[in-house]
Design a protein around this nucleic acid. Structure first.
Length: 257
DNA sequence: AATCAAGGCAACCGCCGAGCG
DNA sequence: GCGCTCGGCGGTTGCCTTGAT
């Protein structure tokens, strides 16, 4: 038995697929602006379109609906996406609700084509070197950065280095857990350049953020892809920030678990 | 200038829950 | 309670554009 929408009768039409023509857009826009939508499956016939209702609905929501923002995402919007994705997962429609003028499809595309690559989760990283070696590289980098960049808060960098060293000492060296599997051509530095750094070492938030400012980090000469502020990392990973696969940084003590 | 690969994005597909007969 | 449609959502596909060779 084929049920029909109780409000309408829908003649069968041959459904077109593929990109919408300007003429089709105009027909759909005109119809909806004039009549609104009570039943999407009835729209194509009433609007004179050879599309199915689903396709019309999608076209309206993602492209024709008034108030849609076009163009690149702002850094603030990106930050919102990253933050909410970490909280909600791939709930694109919910995330899009926090971004006026953006559709779930846009948010999803932005995530899949761009943001996902900026933030690589530890479990997705691949390397064959040990976690402790990787951390040593981080320390070297920070030390180098501390001496090269005047604007970095020296005390914060120094304290961070000390804290990491302390963590390394506490870390059971017998554990030979690697960061992940595969990708032997990638170095530990490559891996960690995408992850860093929590504000879990009792550093002042202000210093931390100024030290690991994203834009600053991208423009500096560390050969790093992305560094993240404490708040950005926190948004992505909650309290279980960075670290090699299998470890967790607790939020207060700066120790590996 | 031609070709190829990668990235971006619009649209489709398939699933699910709600609502109705 | 069952079967069906509809609308909504997330995943995926495929076309088009752009950049590299």
């Amino acid at each position: 038995m084929r049920m029909e929408c109780k409000n309408c009768k829908k003649p069968e039409v041959d459904c077109r697929k593929g990109l919408w023509s300007p003429d089709e857009d105009q027909k759909l826009r005109d119809y909806i602006l004039q009549h609104g939508v009570s039943c999407w499956s009835a729209v194509p016939a009433k609007a004179g379109l050879q599309r199915n209702g689903k396709s019309c609905r999608l076209r309206w929501i993602n492209y024709l609906r008034p108030g849609l923002k076009r163009g690149n995402f702002s850094p603030e919007e990106e930050e919102t996406i990253v933050k909410l994705q970490s909280k909600l997962g791939n709930k694109w429609s919910q995330i899009a609700m926090h971004l006026p003028g953006r559709t779930d499809n846009e948010v999803k595309n932005q995530w899949n084509s761009y943001l996902k690559k900026k933030i690589i989760k530890p479990q997705e990283l691949g390397t064959s070197i040990s976690a402790s070696s990787a951390l040593n590289l981080i320390i070297q980098r920070i030390t180098m950065h501390k001496t090269e960049k005047d604007h970095v808060v020296p005390s914060a960098a120094g304290r961070y280095t000390e804290a990491l060293e302390s963590c390394l000492k506490n870390y059971d060296q017998s554990v030979t857990q690697n960061i992940g599997g595969g990708s032997p051509n990638r170095t530990a530095a490559d891996q960690f350049s995408n992850v860093l750094f929590p504000d879990c070492l009792s550093f002042e938030q202000a210093n931390w953020d100024s030290l690991f400012n994203l834009d600053d980090a991208i423009s500096n000469q560390w050969h790093c892809k992305n560094f993240y502020t404490a708040s950005q990392v926190d948004a992505q990973y909650g309290n279980n920030v960075i670290v090699p696969n299998g470890f967790r940084f607790t939020n207060t003590c700066g120790q590996f678990e």
